[in-house]
Amino acid sequence: MTVATEAPPPSGSGTATRPRAAGRRTGPSGGWREAAAHQLFLVPVAAVFIVLFVIPLGQTFYWSLTDFTGYSDDFAFVGLENYRTILSDPSMTAGLTFTLLFAVGTTVLTTVIAIPLAVALNQRLYGRNLARSLFFFPAIPSMAVLGLVWGYILSPLGSGVLNSVLDSTLGLGPVPWLSDSTLAKFSVIMVGVWGGAGWHAVLYLAYLQSIPHEYYEVATIDGASGRQRFFHITLPLLMPAMVISQFLLMTNGLKVFDLPYTLTNGGPGFATQTITQSIIVSGVGQGQYGIASALAVLFTIAVAALAFSQLLISRRIERRVL
């Protein structure tokens, strides 16, 4: 009997983990010390999160209930007045509409372009590295620079770069790329897609290269067509990359400022105005920090809701596919 009780536990994953778990719950002070030591590693991150996010967000909410101008500490509490002003202002609702359109438009179009582009750049072809570099290049300059350059390319005059090309090649009259509300929205989204598709294609490329080649070989032997291989092997195995890419696209799209600001300055009218532009113009340009803060609070809530929903849906699809 004694021999049996003193015998070492049999090897195996189930029994091997049990004593450690039991030790953590019932052991002497070493257990909680170890747990506390682990938690200590989170302190710097938590401190940064609190200082750079929680406190500013709390302050923003506080200012959103005031008529703070940004120039004087002499301010008054106005309750939810700033929120009422925002929700009744047509320019703010126009800004919200275009921001959502830009975020969704760039997310969908970039994804639709970036995945086939990544597949193409993954093929064995002459000058592949040069092609990858060329497609990645638009992601290097800032969006503000892209906006200024594209402003000349998309000039609505006949002397604009794109209009000159259209005229000389197809005989088309000048197209009002930036002076027509609908075309201006389309132009801003297209430039955003042009600037981001290459970067996201490289992201997909990294995931593509991790897909075992044997899958394709087996599928080919089984007689699967190229289309079937793409939809039944490539696309499902790219799902983790799509989650990351679309999350980045959506969040960056929602907080976009530099591209529309430099390309159209929010015009014509309020057609391409974004929420971030409204926040900056109201807060800094117009000394309405209360209104800008209220807008920032509403926008933070909207972005958080969208981002969480997107993550939730993506993970559910990911689980179903993989």
Partner: peptide, 21 residues
């Protein structure tokens, strides 16, 4: 005058003028 002026910046207008257009 063209309604495209809503999509023009000051530099573009100046360039058109300086180029004699």
């Amino acid at each position: 005058v063209t309604r495209d002026t809503v999509g023009l910046g000051p530099d573009q207008v100046e360039a058109e003028f300086a180029n004699g257009r």
